Amino acid sequence: MAEDSNTRLPELTARAVLLGERIDTAGLERRDALSATPLAFRVGQNAGMAVVFRYGVVVLVGLDTLAEDEVIRGVAPRVIDPFSMREEETIRLTPLDGREERADSDGVVRIADFSPERMLVVADALAKSAALAHDERQVEEVMEAIEPWARTLSERGRRPAGRREMIQLIGRGLLVQHHVAGRVAVSEKPDLLWDRPDLERLYARLEDEYELIERAGILDRKLNLISETAQLITDLMDTERSLRLEVIVVLLIALEIVLSVFQILWGFRH
């Protein structure tokens, strides 16, 4: 079966599309499904297949544009919080040329066959890369928003004015943290590898090609910086608020003293 697929399809294209925050796969199950988690099924008569990941990504393998659009339209009603800008990742898959399975620098992945198991491994790495690309862009936007604030704090020694803007910045940072933490566990390997340990080397090559662990580590460090910055903003706001309350209390005490003195002096005069 694998050899026949390689003969008919010397090269396949795999494309990952990030549609939204999550995809509700309940009710999408099929009797002819190739996998339940993630949900994978054949599309068309050839080696084409679609893989639906709950964290918002659909991977389309060996499909033309019309077939891809049809799959996406079928999944779209199940997308929770769809994104206006869809992140995409594309690679080409070709049979081996006599050497071991690998991911070449030109974006071509050479694999032993086009079996569903290998396609699932490829889809898992490709989907994680697409999700990471979206998260990286979101984090960069928050970092760019933080930079002017940090520059003003460094130059003037105090936070910029605009309490509402700062609260929005804190909320944006927390929202990105929630999205990244809850989207996909990059460090976790596909469940398929428990049954097919022979595919671990292929997944490791793809993991290295897309630098999944390294990118996740960089994201984690940036998120920690965002968290620390949000905490700093909160502390400064609380300090300023406490200082204003203390000043108000002191002024009230001083006013009370002045009034008491005035009453005493007024009593002496009359």
Rank of each mutant, 00 (worst) to 15 (best):
A67R: 00
H134T: 06
P82T: 07
I170W: 04
E89V: 13
R22G: 06
R172P: 04
R159G: 09
V258L: 14
E256S: 14
R8K: 15
I23C: 12
A216D: 14
R118D: 01
R102Y: 04
S5D: 15
V261K: 07
T37W: 09
T239E: 11
G48C: 05
Q168G: 11
R73T: 15
A145I: 00
F53W: 09
A161Y: 12
D32M: 07
V17W: 02
E100G: 10
G162Y: 02
S105K: 11
G62Q: 02
H178R: 12
S115P: 00
F83T: 00
A47D: 08
R30F: 01
L12H: 09
E155Y: 09
T234S: 15
L232C: 01
I167M: 10
E136S: 05
G44C: 03
P10Q: 01
R244V: 07
R159I: 10
I218N: 12
E140F: 09
S129M: 04
E165A: 14
G267I: 11
R151L: 11
I80D: 01
E68Y: 05
W149H: 11
M85D: 09
I111F: 10
L153I: 07
F262H: 06
I257T: 13
S187E: 11
R158K: 11
I253D: 01
M237C: 00
H178E: 13
A76Q: 15
I170F: 05
D81H: 09
